[in-house]
Design a protein around this nucleic acid. Structure first.
Lengths: 228, 228
DNA sequence: CCGCATCCGGGGCGATACTG
DNA sequence: CAGTATCGCCCCGGATGCGG
């Protein structure tokens, strides 16, 4: 990217990160530690292959990602974040938190979806109301692959589960309906009408879901959002 | 900006903020509450006037900024952030914090500079080591206009000072030298050799500056930064 | 002056095809 | 699987013009 030519920390960051697709590549690598070129391509629907190659080169030159030649039997190149790349998490989290209101009204026409992307709304909306109790996990089945939510230190974190990992409860349904439930905009009964399936102790869900009258989310509701 | 077409909070944010110059316009409005078109143009060296007009329209449509028609004697349109726009501060702060290492090696050739941009390095590097004592202020004279640092709740915040506001100490010099002092990379004696002028009780500066062997800044030193 | 609109050249980007 | 090559378009940068 052409430099802004400003001796300013924000501008310097944008010199490195401001190109189209760059931060979404970082998002993919924050959600899944190591990815192949093809995995990135699949996780970034719409990116042109030459752009992906360009961005990966630039990010490597900037010290944000590293290329690892995996030994057999994998025998392919894997991309992962460097330490400096992992320090981008606060930026992505801030962007995610600010963008959550744009999700609560449902996907726009033609939007694609991957369940890992629920990571940000889940961590923003949910919290552990009984942090002293033993931790619990909930498995989300929303897109192609599941997402695991777990209570940790009073908050809720998400990650891609290991194979055959069992959770205390499972929640399945459409992205919009599951998000409505997680945000506290609708309750479980209403969610079920929208096709949501919840299996497990209801107390597990209640433990992490927002208290019902959508409270104190610091302007995270979609109300008063411009039409775009 | 063309939408990424992804039902993801990060992508939705970038749909609104990802265009070139957009976040730098927000930066200007976070640093100074209300700005005229011409002020923005001056604060964003290099931006084309049509792009500035485009971005302001887009940001207004997105509900991030608002246009205020100032009454006489000002008689001009002022731009300011909405509530939603002010919630972008965590994003800018995260970008600023990540970008600080790119500043510690000095400005690149042709970089322009404005003293307000020292806001991020100052808040990242400085802290109040004696939060129980009465608050102190330091006035930075680095660029055209001064920047005021003040201790608040154990941290150091910065803002553009009111006219004729007096600080407990003043610090003047080149951006690179002042930044070296603020980051703890050089001490006051060395800074003075580089043309820095400090007036006031040395204890004021020591109270906020990092303890000398550049300690624990979470990878914020410029070491091991790629050449770009 | 202030707040833009218009025009125009160049390059970043999007889509597809092709290759070691 | 991991890219390169190509082509059109549109975004961006820079200059100028223009009404209030």
């Amino acid at each position: 990217m052409r430099s802004y030519g400003q001796y300013c920390a924000v501008a310097k960051s944008l010199d490195v990160l401001g190109d189209r697709w760059t931060l979404l590549i970082v998002r993919e690598l924050l959600l899944t530690d190591q990815l192949r070129y093809t995995d990135l391509r699949n996780g970034l629907p719409g990116i042109a292959t030459n752009l992906l190659a360009d961005r990966l080169r630039e990010l490597e030159a900037a010290g944000v990602i590293a290329r690892v030649e995996a030994p057999p039997p994998v025998a392919t190149t894997l991309f992962s974040l460097t330490d400096r790349g992992r320090r981008l998490r606060p930026i992505l989290d801030a962007l995610g938190r600010w963008g959550v209101p744009y999700m609560t009204e449902g996907p726009a026409d033609g939007d694609v979806f991957r369940s890992e992307w629920l990571s940000w709304p889940a961590e923003v909306f949910l919290s552990d109301h009984r942090p002293e109790d033993p931790p619990v996990t909930i498995e989300l089945h929303v897109g192609e692959q599941p997402l695991l939510l777990e209570t940790v230190e009073g908050a809720v974190r998400s990650r891609v589960p290991e194979a055959a990992e069992r959770a205390d409860a499972t929640l399945a349904g459409s992205p919009h309906a599951v998000l409505g439930l997680l945000s506290g905009r609708i309750d479980l009964d209403r969610a079920r009408e929208l096709g949501v399936v919840y299996e497990g102790d209801p107390a597990v869900l209640e433990r992490v879901c927002p208290t019902h009258p959508e409270a104190g989310f610091d302007g995270l509701s979609a109300d008063a959002l411009p039409s775009l």
